[in-house]
């Protein structure tokens, strides 16, 4: 997009010069010069085209009364019918609200806590102790959601440990049915997610912290900065680029939160709070064989994701000119 920093384009090229090579030639020469780089990148470009661009052809489905056994020419076209239906469905807005709410919560907690955790971990002096803590903290990442959901359901059951604790402490006189209260559902999902992913998400921040030049800390110590000052003035600014890039990436995925955790933790009582877009597409698109409707939901999601991605990039560019990735 913009010229890389430090590239000094000689002014003369921008002036008409009969001897200068034409644009096409120039590009060809550049490609030839960098042919190995292009070759190296080729497989990935092909991969992206096959797996990310060709499937976009399937979006045509959303505008048809799609029947899988008919060929493309035999499908009936229905225009925007399914989109109109989608935007007239009350359920859809409920589901959208849940998706965005849970997504924002997990973004909020999924950011602040791993960063804090990484910084605290970094402050631990003993290397072995630090590594042990780190390993323990990211192990839950490898546990399947099925198991995590099972653990949380048991923990929060009427006779479960959480209720026993609350009763023993006298904080409540009747056991609380946590899993049956819609208001608690977002919180439960977020906490479960945090427990599972905290350690794993902190790895990248920890790596960024490791990359900060040690001399900076020494210099700061010389100037009499305490631990908190060092964190504030060296560690945090040091990992800022990583934080921003991770933020952009997750904002782009804000609406794609998947449905495993919600699906596994939900029950009929909390459906108003637990159903997310993907689950909605599954029930009203795939389950009842309305492939077109499911595709329409998918297109909506993609459109929202693209908007969010540009938005995030724009905001960050406003804050800091160097960090935008697009």
């Amino acid at each position: 997009m913009r010229p890389a920093k430090g590239s000094t384009q000689p002014l003369i090229y921008s002036m008409p010069d009969p001897a200068a090579p034409t644009w096409g030639r120039k590009i060809m020469r550049q490609i030839y010069q960098q042919r190995y780089l292009f070759l190296m990148v080729l497989p990935f470009v092909v991969w992206v085209i096959i797996f990310k661009y060709i499937p976009i052809w399937g979006w045509t489905m959303a505008f048809q009364d799609y029947k899988p056994h008919l060929s493309f020419a035999e499908q009936t076209w229905v225009g925007w019918k399914y989109f109109v239906e989608l935007f007239h469905d009350r359920q859809f807005y409920l589901v959208l609200r849940n998706t965005i709410a849970m997504s924002l919560l997990s973004l909020l907690c999924g950011y602040t806590f791993p960063i804090m955790f990484a910084i605290l971990l970094n402050e631990i002096g003993r290397r072995y102790f630090r590594q042990i803590i780190q390993t323990i903290s990211y192990l839950p990442h490898f546990v399947s959601w099925v198991v995590v959901a099972g653990i949380f359901t048991k923990l929060l059951a009427i006779g479960g440990p959480v209720n026993q604790l609350l009763l023993a402490l006298g904080l409540t006189d009747k056991p609380i049915l946590f899993m049956a209260k819609g208001e608690y559902f977002w919180g439960i999902v977020t906490i479960a997610d945090l427990w599972k992913e905290l350690g794993w998400n902190s790895i990248i921040f920890l790596a960024a912290i490791m990359g900060i030049d040690g001399n900076l800390y020494e210099a700061a110590q010389m100037d009499g900065a305490g631990r908190f000052r060092q964190i504030w003035h060296i560690t945090l600014p040091g990992i800022r680029p990583v934080v921003f890039i991770m933020l952009i990436m997750s904002i782009g995925n804000l609406i794609n939160i998947g449905f495993e955790k919600q699906f596994l933790l939900q029950n009929n009582m909390v459906k108003d709070y637990s159903e997310v877009l993907d689950l909605y597409a599954l029930t009203y698109g795939i389950r009842v064989a309305r492939y077109a409707y499911g595709t329409a939901v998918g297109i909506f999601k993609s459109a929202v994701s693209i908007v969010l991605l540009f938005l995030a990039n724009f905001i960050i560019r406003r804050f800091n000119d160097d960090r935008a990735v697009l």
Binding site: N268, D272, Y284, V288
Partner: peptide
């Protein structure tokens, strides 16, 4: 058969029952 006026309301009503009946009973 896959008639939208039958299958879609039915799916929605079944889902609604699963939500409302527990609320009503409790």
């Amino acid at each position: 058969p896959m008639i939208e006026d039958l299958t879609i309301p039915l799916q929605r009503c079944d889902d609604l029952c699963k939500k409302r009946i527990p609320e009503i009973v409790l």
